[in-house]
Write a protein that binds this DNA or RNA. Structure first.
Length: 601
RNA sequence: GCGGGCGUAGUUCAGUUGGUUUAGAACGCCGCCCUGUCACGGCGGAGGUCGCGGGUUCAAGUCCCGUCGCUCGCGCCA
């Protein structure tokens, strides 16, 4: 007989009755009835009820075993007597009568419960992650993660993609997020950087002629965290040669859609999958106030600046902003005019908590406009408003007035707040959409300069011609995002594979040829020896799993993960290192004093 | 860097307008009882610097200030 087990804890059925078996696992729960003791033995495959009774010399020992101890038992499988079968368990028709038992590892009193969700805080769960991971819910999510990556690999390979690994120790690159840096021992004063993404490597693989690349790539970015952002994360990274933007969509969309379809009932509720028509970036910003709109929210934003600019409208709060170049955006909330005053007040309070002066509105009932602002908008203007916003009797309309970019953003937030207040966000559906035609450049208010708005390697639409002849802020890029339920799932572009267009594009953003050569010389050189037109995208693997598992944050879909401050309480990272290590790396610390003393105290 | 929320037993939480000798509950833990449970049940017990520091007050878990920790967001993140 095997040293530890003949079967797994989810294996045994009525057909095994009479067999002598050996099982190993964790004590999930005990039920001690004095003369008879039930032990639920658990492994990742299931739970089997094991029994000791007064006839056994083991009884006195077994009563002492604590939950979560690891034991090995040998015993006979028998049918549960009488009515005592448990239909909730796959193994519920049998039990194992324990003849021999070994305690492989006794457990101390555990800091939180494994067999049930006792609501333990996240900091504790992360500190004792190995216990947290024993819980059924975590086992399921980690299994989901495994199955999702396997499914993606299978689907990509079926489409003739080749999987690559690319360097983890690489060069710092100037654009984008802050890099994680690794000091070099062999090269004093020099540093490697961990890749923010394998961007340049995958492009060079295209230049190398591989045609269809993918990688489930670790990426590292040293910026502050969010529920959907971590220091290290994984992307399904994709790149293809000789393709247009639509070719890329048509290739990756079935992979993502098929994978989502495969796991869309993970939560126990089947989710529909819907892929909406492409959305232009500018339209997204106007209609939804976001470049990653949640399209389960049916509300749309319209511009009604014209209405409030009319001479017969006397609402000074808005007029003042409009005269300084501002805009008024409106959100129609259908059939809410009969809601109590508190409905509108709550939204107003919400807007103030977001730093807005308030959230003005007019509600229409019995053909009449009502609400605090209505008296400033005469009937003729109300008619124009109704037409612009598609208002019907019984509707209300909310207003946001500010300078364009601020108004867009606030309207986007208000759109979600109103939707939630109304309770009409669509459920049990994944609504996907490609957001396309991102602007190549944007005006940076803080530096008062034109800069790349997304990836500087993107190909400008219209190529050299547009760069030379158009207002830079009017140049679009072949740059796109894939959006699902309010998350940016992917970002991608057709790349700029022509060095001369690259030079021009960087020049417009204020980077000279010397800078370009210094920072991206390797990439530029590669383009000079025959570069195919190419493009790709990268999907946030963790965000996709988070959506499928219906979890509110990324940390829930990793086995091991840092907390919100990017500290790992389990492994104690980041940590101090020895003076010898620092010396090897030619590094002297220069830590601000107050930080030192805080940490010491 | 900034803002919101939270911090009371091992865990999750309650704790009224500041006011009664010993700050409660559930789960967990320890002891005793119980032969058919499966969230077993019953009786009993241990367990607290109310995050920390200061202040107001006759009196602070409760009010004020500071600070630390966790969390969500803003900035940041092509």
């Amino acid at each position: 007989m095997h040293a530890y087990r003949t079967h797994r804890c989810g294996d045994l059925r009525l057909s095994h009755v009479g067999e002598t078996v050996k099982l190993s696992g964790w004590i999930n729960r005990k039920r001690d009835h004095g003369g008879v003791l039930f032990i639920d033995l658990r492994d990742t495959y299931g739970v089997t009820q094991c029994v000791v009774d007064e006839g056994s010399p083991l009884l006195a020992h077994a009563e002492q075993w604590r939950n979560e101890s690891v034991i090995t038992i040998v015993g006979k499988v028998r049918a549960r007597p009488g009515e005592s079968a448990n239909t909730k368990l796959p193994t519920g028709e049998i039990e194992v009568y324990i003849d021999e038992a070994d305690v492989q590892s006794a457990a101390d009193v555990i800091p939180f419960q494994v067999a049930e969700d006792d609501g333990a805080g996240e900091d504790l769960r992360l500190k004792y992650r190995y216990l947290d991971l024993r819980r059924e819910k975590m086992q399921k999510k980690i299994r989901l993660r495994n199955e999702v990556t396997a499914s993606i690999r299978r689907r990509m390979i079926e489409q003739e993609f080749q999987e690559f690994q690319t360097p983890i120790l690489t060069a710092s690159s100037p654009e984008g997020a802050r890099d994680y840096l690794v000091p070099s021992r062999l090269h004093p004063g020099k540093f490697y950087a961990l890749p923010q993404a394998p961007q340049q490597f995958k492009q060079m693989l295209m230049i190398s002629g591989f045609d269809k690349y993918f990688q489930i790539a670790p990426c590292f970015r040293d910026e502050d965290g969010r529920a959907d952002r971590l220091a290290e994360f994984y992307q399904l990274d994709v790149e293809m040669s000789f393709v247009t933007q639509e070719d890329i969509f048509n290739t990756v969309q079935p992979v993502i859609e098929g994978m989502f379809e495969e796991f869309s009932d993970f939560t126990g509720t089947k989710h529909k999958i819907e892929w909406l028509p492409h959305l232009r970036y500018e339209d997204a910003m106007l209609k939804y106030g976001s470049d990653k709109p949640d399209l389960r929210n049916p509300l749309e934003i319209v511009d009604v600046s014209d209405v409030f600019a009319r001479d017969d409208v006397e609402f000074k709060a808005f007029k003042g902003v409009i005269s300084k170049g501002g805009v008024v955006r409106a959100i129609r909330a259908p059939k809410v005019s009969d809601r109590p005053r508190s409905f509108f007040d709550k939204l107003n309070n919400w807007a103030q908590s977001e730093g807005a002066p308030g959230l003005g509105y007019i509600s229409f009932s019995e053909g009449e406009g009502k609400g605090p602002i209505a008296k400033f908008v005469p009937e003729a203007a109300q008619i124009q408003l109704k037409e612009s916003a598609g208002l019907e009797d019984g509707d209300a309309v909310f207003f946001i007035c500010d300078q364009k970019s601020k108004a867009e953003k606030m309207a986007g937030l208000a759109r979600d707040a109103i939707c939630d207040a109304m309770g009409n966000r669509e459920k049990n559906i994944y609504k996907f959409c490609w957001v396309v035609d991102f602007p190549m450049y944007e005006f940076d208010e803080t530096t008062q300069k034109i800069d790349f708005s997304h990836n500087p390697f993107s190909m400008p639409q219209g190529g050299m011609d547009d760069l030379e002849n158009k207002d830079p802020l009017g140049v679009y890029a072949y740059q796109y995002d894939c959006v699902c339920n309010g998350f940016e799932l992917a970002s991608g572009a057709i790349r700029n594979h022509k060095p001369e267009i690259m030079a021009k594009a960087f020049g417009i953003a204020g980077y000279g040829k010397d800078v370009l050569e210094k920072e991206f010389g390797g990439m530029l050189n590669a383009m000079r020896y025959g570069a195919p037109p190419h493009g790709g995208c990268a999907f946030g693997l963790d965000r996709m799993i988070m959506l499928l598992a219906d979890e509110p944050n990324l940390r829930e879909v990793y086995a091991f993960v840092m907390n919100g401050q990017y500290e790992d309480q389990l492994m104690n990272a980041p940590s101090d290192i020895t003076p010898e290590q620092l010396k090897d790396l030619h590094i002297k610390l220069n830590v601000p004093k107050e930080i030192k003393t805080e940490k010491a105290a």
